[in-house]
Amino acid sequence: MNSCKFIGRITRDLEFRVTPSGTELVSFDIAVQRSFKNNDGEYESDFIRCVAFKKTADFINNYAKKGYVMAVDGEMRNNNYEDNNGVKHYGMQLIINNVDTTVLFLNKKNNQDSEVSTAGYDYGTTKQSQGQNTSPAVSTASNPFANGGPLTDDDLDDLPF
């Protein structure tokens, strides 16, 4: 079974593009801190190449940016290719199936100057393991997270769940 979960910080600007066939694609790297210290008493990190397609790519492009912490799950795949000079390149990349929106939107509270907007977007990330979309559509009017501030008692009455 090929299933991976990572929590890490985005280390470079997102690269969003549309393929010739019209499929949205976003690629970026996340730094995942190891759970143990090295001989110098410091934590090291692994850098994971991530790629997302379609609605997940669109969602990430709209709500994430360099420096944000993300929790993602997906499948590791070989990314081997030969360049124009005949040099073979070997690597792995995570094909993202799901983004944990709870972790992603914690960044908004910590970055009040964020240019990322949540206005009118269908939080359409899917739970691939369940085979269905489990996230409801949320509009700006009913989104207590839109202002990025702490929840109040009035906000709790407006939650969509």
Rank of each mutant, 00 (worst) to 15 (best):
E44N: 15
F36G: 09
E75P: 00
G149L: 12
R9F: 02
I30G: 02
V18A: 01
V69S: 08
E15F: 02
K65I: 11
V26L: 12
V32E: 12
Y121H: 05
E44S: 13
G67L: 07
D113V: 05
N80S: 10
Y43L: 06
K65C: 12
I30T: 08
Y43G: 03
K109D: 01
N85H: 06
S117D: 11
G149A: 15
A141Y: 05
A64C: 15
D155N: 15
N147M: 12
F28G: 01
G131Y: 05
V18F: 03
T19A: 03
N79D: 14
K65M: 09
G22W: 10
T23D: 03
R49H: 14
R49A: 12
S27I: 06
T134I: 14
T23L: 11
N147V: 11
Y63L: 08
E24T: 09
A141S: 07
D40W: 03
R34I: 08
T19M: 06
D83K: 03
E82H: 00
F16I: 05
A137N: 07
D29I: 02
Y63G: 01
D83L: 08
V69C: 05
I10K: 00
D46S: 07
P160F: 04
P150G: 06
G148C: 11
V99G: 00
N110G: 07
E42S: 12
A119V: 11
N62F: 05
R34M: 14
D158N: 13
T126A: 05
L106S: 13
F47E: 08
N143F: 04
F59K: 02
D46M: 05
A71W: 07
D158Y: 06
T23N: 08
D158R: 14
P150W: 07
A57V: 04
V26F: 11
F105Y: 12
D40R: 14
M1F: 05
I60L: 14
C50L: 02
V103L: 13
L106T: 11
R49Y: 09
T140Y: 02
T23M: 10
E42R: 15
S21F: 11
K5V: 14
A64D: 04
E15R: 03
M92S: 13
K109N: 08
V51M: 06
V103R: 03
S117C: 12
K5Y: 14
K54E: 10
G67S: 07
M76F: 15
V103W: 04
E42Y: 15
A137P: 00
A119R: 03
D153L: 07
H89L: 01
A31L: 10
V116D: 03
S142N: 12
K55I: 02
